[in-house]
Nucleic acid binder design. Structure first.
Length: 437
RNA sequence: GGAGAGGUGGCUGAGUGGUCGAAAGCGCGGGUUUGCUAAAUCCGUGACCCUUCGGGGUCCGCAGGUUCGAAUCCUGUCCUCUCCGCCA
């Protein structure tokens, strides 16, 4: 949410930004309503002040007659105040509604464009896409041959979009989590596991909308709890309503959580196999920072994402997200797109991570503030989030890029300590296990 | 799930209808004293919003209600703690 005063005072800039973002918002109406609201607020406050004044004299009244007269006076003032107040509240409600639909401001360097076609490639990873001297398979075929994923079983239990990881894929999931968490802990992140459910107000605060036909969110019936779409929601909510000391910032937290997404309206989009599923595991980075730290933190998050994918030996490119593709809360966003040899005709890049600087947009609604010692008042913190590893999509890239001519998968060096083997599905594996018997 | 207790400022904790934005202590900021440190002592110290910058309004978990007036009374609700049950 943007600051209301800021919107009123910078209406033209906000309007222009909405155009760049491809979002329709009636800024003029908001400005008009806000002016009316302030007028009503002043009236209500004045009436309230008068009523308070009257109330104070009642205890000191000399006799019953005077007391009754003053009571009547007070009652009338309250009635007037209630009337004005309710008009005010009505306006305020509409303003909040309009205000909630206005996206964050955009970084001046973010490419301007209406959708992901305008995203700007800014960098490539250490490793170039391999050219296979055989026809590479996609991860669905690989997983089937090696008995790594059971999509049919998942569908039987919970419907399309759910799956069982099996055998070494389970070890791969755990290995990827370990790999990412260890690296982040080494970078000063505090690791957490988070609730997989969160209150509706926390989702709103982070910019997710749990109701409506297009919602991405699963909600729990007869409660105000929702399955989280990312640990960004829970970690962001961790400090909601809190005021932290400026010296404690920046606060870097990494969390592992399950992510649940309905993917409503996503039918028809590239979604084979693990690419677009209703549940996956994700290691997320999150930071609460001072306002002047957030630009550098975004670069830091992006660099860590690169290091994670370079460390896995996976080819990728980094994309600077265009204004029209930023969503509501992000001020600037970088995506990593990993090379997936089995995607499309001859391989394609597919989004695997995303890191955003949300400035004070989430903090304002979550009400997370900081206070500088010796300074009066408080300010909103900045929040940032970034994917360290979304296991499902990382798994696609790992399986497809490391496939061997014999159909086996070479386990990336970085994961071997946790997977406990160099190759998944090699013939030698079969010999080994026989030898051991 | 059953039975109790409780939610007050950064923290501990008083406050059962008006003089309470709220005692006291701790913490924090500053002054004095002191060779430094420590100790003592004094003063100050919540947040948000509006403002014609004089000031004003709101906030005691949250939402309603009673009242001229609510931290205080009533209703609902959420959360926390303790005990029992159940369970990983």
């Amino acid at each position: 949410m943007l600051d209301r005063k800021y919107i009123v005072e910078n209406a033209e800039a906000v309007k222009q930004n909405c155009i760049h973002r491809g979002i329709e918002a009636d800024i003029d109406r908001l400005v008009t309503l806000e002016q009316q609201r302030r007028e009503l607020l002043n009236q209500a406050q004045e009436l309230n002040r008068q009523a308070n004044e009257v109330a104070k004299t009642i205890g000191k009244a000399k006799n019953d007659a005077e007391r009754d007269a003053r009571k009547e006076e007070g009652r009338k003032l309250r009635e007037q105040k209630d009337e004005v107040q309710s008009q005010h509240d009505k306006l305020d409600k509409e303003i909040v509604c309009l205000q909630g639909g206005i996206p964050n401001l955009s970084h001046p360097d973010a490419p301007i464009g209406e959708d992901d076609k305008s995203n700007l490639e800014i960098r490539k990873g250490e490793h170039a896409p391999l050219s296979f001297d055989f026809q590479p398979l996609d991860h669905v075929e690989l997983a089937e041959k090696l008995d790594l994923i059971d999509f049919e079983g998942g569908a039987r239990v919970a419907g399309a979009g759910f799956y069982f990881l099996k055998n070494d894929a389970v070890l791969l999931e755990l290995a990827l989590q370990q790999y990412a968490l260890r690296m982040l802990m080494g970078e000063g992140f505090t690791p957490v596991t988070t609730p997989d459910l969160a209150y509706t107000e926390i989702l709103h605060g982070t910019g997710y909308i749990p109701r409506g036909p297009e919602t991405q969110i699963y909600s729990i019936e007869n409660s105000n709890l929702n399955l989280v779409a990312t640990a960004e929601i829970t970690i962001g909510g961790l400090l909601s309503g809190q005021t932290v000391d400026a010296e404690e910032l920046p606060l870097k937290i990494c969390g592992s959580s399950h992510c649940f997404r309905t993917e409503a309206g996503a039918a028809g989009r590239a979604s084979r196999g693990l690419y677009r599923v209703h549940q996956f595991t994700k290691v997320e980075m999150f930071a609460f920072t001072l306002p002047d730290q957030s630009d550098a933190m975004l670069d830091h998050f992006c660099e860590l994402e690169c290091r994670i994918f370079d460390g896995l030996g996976l080819p990728y490119r980094v994309v600077d997200t265009a204004t029209g593709d930023l969503g509501g809360p992000a001020y600037r966003k970088f995506d990593l797109e990993a090379w997936m040899p089995g995607r499309g005709e001859n391989g394609e890049y597919g989004e695997v991570t995303s890191t955003s600087n949300c400035t004070d947009y989430q903090a304002r609604r979550l009400n997370v503030r900081f206070k500088r010692k010796g300074e009066k008042g408080t300010q909103f913190v900045h929040t940032l989030n970034g994917t360290a590893l979304a296991i499902s999509r990382a798994l696609i890239a790992v399986l497809e890029n490391n496939q061997q001519p014999d159909g086996s998968i070479s386990v990336p060096q970085a994961l071997r300590p946790w997977v406990g083997k160099d190759v998944i599905g090699s013939p030698s594996e079969v010999f080994l296990s026989r030898d051991e018997e």
